[in-house]
Design a protein around this nucleic acid. Structure first.
Lengths: 256, 256
DNA sequence: GAATGTTATTCTATATATTGAATGACAAGG
DNA sequence: CCTTGTCATTCAATATATAGAATAACATTC
């Protein structure tokens, strides 16, 4: 709400910010919505909201049910996602590595893209089992500082401690670590190049993350391994080493 | 180009049409582009194009490389696609049927959404063999009237013959059928409820399609089966029957 | 190293997208 | 049946997004 207002004020093309907000809202809800409720939710003027929706319908990004007068996301968004998936360099390079790690250790692996201190987006995934619906997980968003990835981002992002703390306070964990413990774990991640979340984020689940750089500065991506804590115990050191190696090799390939 | 101009004139939120055009262009290219070349390609004023891009960057739909001053699609588009995939009714219902058919007949199956006479978008997919980059195919666009699906759409869409002919002339096939042959096949599809493309669209590949209705009017979706022509020959009648049955059952479920 | 062709970006007047009130359509409730 | 509330949609006045020229920062070429 405030975020949308801020973006609107600053931009020279506010209609686009409105459109994106509408798309995200429709995505979050899932169920079709009417003009009025969308407008109310986003703090938009109904008439403006109507024009935005009509434009989005014309672009096939939003579907309009003429009977119920309800709007929902349309398949057009898929086409954009496919185009992105086909061409993203990190994704292409990460997928084989993720598949290999998932198979070798019998775990689930993810590739994520980091958006500053704000959030990460899952862009690639591999699972040892036979499951498919996997691809549905791609595109998920998580807060940046949560779980193992969060420790990586804190360790290598060069962010002011105050910013970290502010964000840290608002995270949701199954079993939240204290600020001091977390800082220590971040420090350890900085030294070893791998971060571990042993059941903090999701009880009983161990998450390991290693940062990937596309250029200098903060890490742009990360590789993640997820496994049941108990089953992982013995192989953990080997997995950490493998994940760090894969991340380093990826960073090198992305440099060129 | 003309299409964009038309959309712009009519709309009360032209920035959104521009934004969508930019996203699609960036998707088609894959490689990052500069402001100027994007503007030139789309017939936009460079300054306006810059504002559009900045707005899209703020929404994380477009990534900006500050060094090269180039723009490309960003991972934000994934999040929208995921939201759509999770909630689309046709997709949820179609996936199990597609999986079953793919396994039983050892073929590839698709679920598509129909956008009038213009195009179709692949929204679900199943493959008998080892599934790899499958999910990458989801989101693909094809001309509406091509292959087996095209015959379905022509048969059940109630479109004026002139419109059909006009579109038909511009299709690209490996081995294009004559207008008369095609009309006859469309007629057959209308009678049997299934359309077959025996090597016209892609040489050596047989494509079968059955229409799915979400309401009354034109079919909104279709189920597609794809197999190597030679391998399919004997099982073809059974497959046609199975596909038609699955499509009918889906239509009934979507009604409620 | 000056010149020329690119770029991305800023600036400002004006066409126009946005607003907020008004309209019409519909459903629920008395 | 009339009222009341909510809905989508239209309309006209005005705040503002956009266009086009001007600027600035580069390369590339001579």
């Amino acid at each position: 709400m405030t975020r949308l207002d801020d973006t609107l004020k600053a931009s020279k093309a506010p209609a686009i910010a409105r459109a994106a907000a509408v798309l995200r809202l429709l995505g979050k809800r899932g169920s079709p919505m009417g003009v009025q409720s969308i407008a109310r939710e986003l703090g938009l003027v109904p008439s403006t909201c109507l024009y935005v929706l009509r434009a989005l319908v014309a672009e096939e990004l939003v579907a309009f049910d003429a009977d119920t007068k309800r709007y929902a996301l349309d398949a057009g968004v898929l086409t954009l996602a496919r185009a992105w998936l086909r061409r993203d360099q990190f994704n292409d390079l990460a997928q084989p590595a993720l598949d290999r790690l998932a198979r070798e250790f019998g775990i689930t692996t993810l590739g994520v893209q980091v958006f500053g201190l704000d959030h990460i987006i899952v862009t690639a995934m591999s699972q040892s089992g036979q499951n498919f619906q996997l691809s549905t997980q791609v595109g998920s968003r998580f807060p940046a500082l949560v779980s193992a990835t969060g420790r990586c981002i804190a360790a290598f992002g060069n962010y002011p401690e105050d910013d970290l703390r502010l964000r840290f306070e608002h995270l949701r964990w199954d079993d939240a670590p204290s600020w001091e413990d977390w800082r220590a774990q971040v420090e350890e991640a900085r030294e070893t190049g791998v971060a571990v979340d042993a059941g903090n984020y999701i009880a009983g689940v161990t998450v390991i993350a290693a940062p990937v750089w596309k250029g200098s500065g903060s890490p742009s991506h990360a590789l993640i391994a997820i496994g049941i804590g108990a089953a992982l115990r013995s192989g953990l050191p080997r997995l950490k080493e493998a994940l760090r190696g894969a991340a380093r090799s990826l960073s090198e390939q992305l440099e060129g």
